[in-house]
Each structure stands twice: as C-alpha cells, then as structure tokens.
Design a binder for these strands. Structure first.
Lengths: 355, 355
DNA sequence: CTGAAAGCGCTAACAC
DNA sequence: GTGTTAGCGCTTTCAG
C-alpha cells in the first residue's frame, strides 16, 4: 500500500514538456513513424529528462492487450521446473512476451490463489503445471477463455492443450534397465499417487515388472512431498527383512530422501543397492557415484508448450492438442548388477527367463 | 496480444445484475461493512453467478496502490536464491502482499529489462539481488522512490537498505578450517570478481591465508559464471605441477564445476583433495562424501529483507539500514586432513606454526 | 446507507 | 501530421 504520485511523471507531463499533445507523445513513445522527426526527438528528450516510465497498468487497461504470460509452477525447488522456466522465458522474450512466474509451493490452495492473481492481472495467456489436488484450483479457470497450456502433471483427458512426458514408457525403460542388471526386488518410491504423472510412472514400473514375470516383487511405496518424509519412508524400506536390491525413485523429493536414507543406512551405491532416479539434476553427474536417472526433455517440453501457447495467442487453432515427449535413460554409476550372493533360486530362475 | 472483451464480466455487469449501483458493488466486493446485508448478498450472488473476476489493473490504476512486490533474482538455478524466494513469498503473503518474480538469468541487460518491467507494473516495493555489472541496471531505479531492499551482492556503500552475508568472515572461517586440517596449498575458485560478495569471499580467503603465514600459497582463480567454464578452469588447476591439496569454491557454479573436474581427474574426496563449498545445497548432504559447505542463513536474510521492506511500505524510517548476517560452516566429509606424504619440509614447518 | 460523478494514465479513433 | 476526445474498469469522494 503506497501512493507515490509525488514524483512519477506521466505521459501528460512529457507531452507538456515537449510542447506536443498527449496523443502525439503516446504515438512517439509507442514507436509510431507518423510523427515528424523533430517532434519525435522533442518527445524522447522530454521523456528522458523527466525520467518518464510508462504505466503499463494504464496502457494495458486501455488497450485491452497484454504481453504477459502467467506461468504457475508447483515447485521451484525442482530443477526440472527451473529448466522449464528458463527455456520458456527465452521463448516468450523472443516472441515479445514476458513471463509472470507464480509459485504454488505444492499447495493447492496457494495454487488457486496464484491462478486468481495472474488472471486478475489480465495476462495474455497462461501456462500451468498443477499441484496434486488441483481440481479446485483449475476451477478458477472456468468461463475464462485465456489461451492456456497445461503441462507435466496432466494427462490426455484434460480439456486443454497439454504437453507431457511419456512417463509410463520412461518408467518401463528404467525398470527394464534394473531388471537387465539382474535385479528382482525393485521398490518404486513415489511422492504421491494423486499426481497423474507419478501414477503413470508407478504404472509403468508395475507393467514392466509384470511383463518380466516379477509381479510378485512389485512394490510401490508412497513417500510424500517432503524430504523428511521420503527419508523416513526409505529408511523403512531399507530396514525390511527382505531388503530390495534396487530402488527406483519416481520423483525429485523421493530421490533426495532415498539417497539420504541409503547413506544413513551405511549402504554403498551401487554395491549394496542400486538407485535409479526419475528426474535428472545437475548434481547427479558431478559426484561419484553418478546417479543414474531418467531425464525429461525439458527443452523440448518448453518448446512444445510455447508452440501451443503461441498459436493460441495468435488466435489460431481452437482444437485441443496433446503433446507427449519421450524421456531418456542416463545410465551412470548408481545402478549396477545385483550381487549374486543375494539371489535365491527363484530369483535366479526368473533372471534366466527372457524379459 | 489478445482482446478478450467477449466474456469477461465487469463490475458494472455485477452491479446491474444485483440491481445496485456500481459504487455499491465496488464497496461490497472490497469488503466494506457499510452496505446493508441484503445488498451484500445480492452483489456476491451476482458476482458468483457471472463468474466475476476483478480487473486488478484497473483497481490499482485507480487507487494508486498495489500489493505486489517485485523481486528481481539473478539465478533461479541457485538453491540459495530459491530458498530466499520461498521464504519471502511466505512473508509477503502474511503481510498481504504478493511477489512478482523476475528472473535476470545473470544477464545485466535482462536485469535492466526486468527492473523496468516490474517498475512499469507499479509495484509497491522492490527487492533486488543484482547480477554483476549491474550499475546500468540499477540506474533504472534513479528518480524512483519505490521502497527498495537490495540483497546479497551488494556492500554497505550502496545507497539503499541492504541485507548481506558477512562473506569476508565466512570465507576466513572456511579457510581456517582447511588450514587447521593441515592444508597449505589451498586454491580459491570464484565465479567472478566483479560480484561484490565474491570479491569479499576471495578477500576473506586471502586474509586468512596471510594471517596463517601462507600468503605465498594463496591463489585465487576466476572460473566464470557457467558450469562448463568452471569445470575447465578447475581441470587446469588440478593439472598444475604442484596440485593444491584443497579447493575452496566461492560460489555455486564453481562447486559444481570443481566437483565434476575432481571426478574427471579420478581424484578421491577427501583423500586426494579436499573441497569446501561456499553456499550449501540440499544434495550436498545426501551423498557420500557429504560436501563441506558454508551455509548462508537464508531464512534470516529473508526475514531481514522483509523487515526492511515492510517498514518502508508502511512509510517508516527513511534512514538507510545495512543488515549483515553471519554464515556458518558445515563440516561434512569432503574436507579432511592433508595427506602427510604430500608435505614438503616447508609445509610441515608451517603446519607446526600456530595459526 | 446508496447513487452519481470524477477521474487514475493511457490508447485509439476521429477530426482538423 | 497533429490535437481532441472518449473511454478501459475500477475506486472514491460527495451529495442525498
């Protein structure tokens, strides 16, 4: 709360100082060529001298056009989302738009508020990566025909343009990698099953296990949305009488918690246990052992999002498109062959069976 | 660019539907008690039915007050800044404000643009963590009396409220830790010396070396603002004939690059070389070896920033305040005693000398 | 308590 | 080319 009318000079001031009319000043500052060079100079000079700064609230209100795009992100702590932010900022800038970032902090209520906030600022378009339990938040968008692209945590049933990773397939690939290494007791640790993509990841894992005849070993554990929860959960998993030989973490938080738990349990990666992480991060390739991960194609996703949004901004294509991207496996050092000593006969037999 | 006048219902629509005047509707929606309950109900009902959403551009334009705070951040890739973002969002929300995040991506030009953008949206206040070479960007703020707090990459000479970490002291502490472990050949790797805080950190390191009689071993290496640069730089450092026994990285990027270089060089942490990182990150405590680091008190800094900003928002205290926070050392596993075999006689003698 | 009316700073017709 | 004018959607006096 603060009125600062004291100093801010307005277009009127500039026009007066330049000795032209308000309309002319407006045109000049908007870059119109239809004003004589002499006056253009006068106006620019006056603006400079007065330290004039356009009030874009007024400009946008009057013209009913905005060059801002609202981007609602659930978690700035996740480097995948940050990559998206950076890439999208570049795309937006290139097309003459600006991003207004809104951070939901994985809280559906806050997300709803963020959406309301962004919408009330009359953005030209929106990009949303929802939190879990976002139905309520999304209902903020009803009866609102802002160009919209949803990403990552949505599926193809969503009645809007979406860009997602094929999580099911990626999780199958990851699981197959682990199985090929001889692992049978593979536990999948996931943040929350009410996130569509996490559910897909878990499903991909289960399908891969089943396809390998390992359905009886399939074990999906939900670890929550925080480090501490996932740490505690993984500690529990590791303390089981039949400890898994491999962990597949289905999300950023899960990986952090699992890693800390593995460390606390005094286990070595990959000799005592293997770990595969869904979602890559810069630090994963920097230490020894490097963490094997599934990397989502952030750049491609951002490009897809912007493509879909931009088309709408230009008034094109009202039909809904669902883009689906392929993630790839980055095998590093945290996934290794299972230790023979740990295999029972049944596991050995299963290993012999073709996948 | 998009006019969507088609559906968006305005306050006038609501007033008409509720059968009251525009002014009354405005008052009700603003929460005024001075309207009869019956009419209040009517207005709310009409607003609900029409899916009314306030146009805050218009509201703020008219009332000359905003509840948005611009926060210009140089690098969302750095978890320290992310911590600041999260904490500040909470503070702002608690006081009824909202953050508008603007990402400068370590680019002074983009930073200038971001500042202009935020300012043109008539924010009530600003928080800025500058990039290097920010002088130009900052000049955007001239003749502009928005409440302002600068943080992190500024020093006490800045003519505005600032909140910073005592980098000099923290770097001295870190260096002393390394020296106490017997290290003599300690190299300080820093992103850029035109960042005030990096400069302070380097200075702290040098002062500590000097104080320990190790001035001849002091070596500050600049590694640039990107992973790849810092990786290459560190590789060079490690290839020197007299390889340092410890690295002290003065920034986030430097740590990442150094770690990758150490890995590529086939060196073990901390047996072959020790590493201390200025700036902590969640992943540093999750793997083995844990990375010893200097942790800036992000929460306290955020609190300080908000405190200073909030005072200004309430029109208090025009005198400038400089808050300075203390960082602490988190000793983990990446810093260990120097290997005896590597010591020459001179080093041995230096080690015997009290610090 | 309620409505009418005057703008916030700016853009976009529209006349001259 | 240039100035005048009518609002964008809203808040806020100010009469009644």
């Amino acid at each position: 709360m603060d009125d600062r009318k004291k100093s801010a000079s307005t277009l009127k001031d500039v026009a007066n100082a330049a000795g032209v009319s308000l309309g002319t000043a407006s045109k000049v500052l908007a870059g119109a060529a239809s004003v004589s060079e002499a006056r253009q100079r006068q106006v620019w000079e006056a603006a400079r001298k007065l330290g004039y700064r356009r009030n874009s609230l007024a400009a946008e209100l009057r013209s009913c056009r905005s060059t801002s795009i609202g981007f609602v992100v659930p978690d700035l702590t996740n480097s995948f989302f940050i990559e998206l932010v950076c890439a999208l900022e570049d795309h937006a800038l290139e097309s003459g738009y600006r991003l207004i970032l809104a951070h939901a902090q994985e809280d559906p209520e806050r997300e709803a508020e963020r959406i309301r906030f962004v919408l009330s600022r009359q953005v030209a378009g929106m990009i949303i990566i929802p939190c879990h339990g976002y139905e309520h938040a999304i209902s903020e968008l009803r009866e609102c025909d802002v160009p919209l692209v949803m990403a990552d945590r949505v599926d193809n049933s969503f009645p809007a343009n979406t860009v997602t990773t094929d999580s099911h397939r990626a999780a199958m690939d990851g699981t197959a990698h682990l199985i090929a290494l001889g692992h049978r007791r593979i536990t999948f640790i996931v943040n929350a099953l009410d996130l569509v993509n996490s559910r897909e990841r878990a499903q991909g894992y289960q399908d891969a296990m089943q396809r390998a005849g390992l359905a009886q070993h399939a074990n999906v554990v939900v670890c929550g949305m925080s480090d501490t929860e996932s740490h505690a959960t993984t500690l529990g998993v590791l303390a089981a009488r039949e400890r898994p030989t491999a962990l597949f973490t289905g999300a950023n938080v899960a990986t952090l918690g699992a890693l800390r738990a593995i460390r606390d349990a005094g286990l070595q990666l990959p000799d005592d246990i293997s770990l595969l992480s869904f979602d890559d991060a810069p630090w994963m390739s920097v230490l020894r052992p490097g963490i094997s991960s599934i990397r989502q194609p952030a750049e491609a996703i951002a490009r897809g999002i912007w493509h879909l949004l931009h088309k709408q901004l230009q008034g094109e294509s009202p039909e809904i498109v669902h883009l689906r991207m392929r993630a790839d496996l980055r095998v590093r050092d945290s996934t290794g062959p299972v230790r023979n000593g740990e295999w029972g006969e049944a596991a050995r037999a299963a290993a012999a069976r073709p996948l």
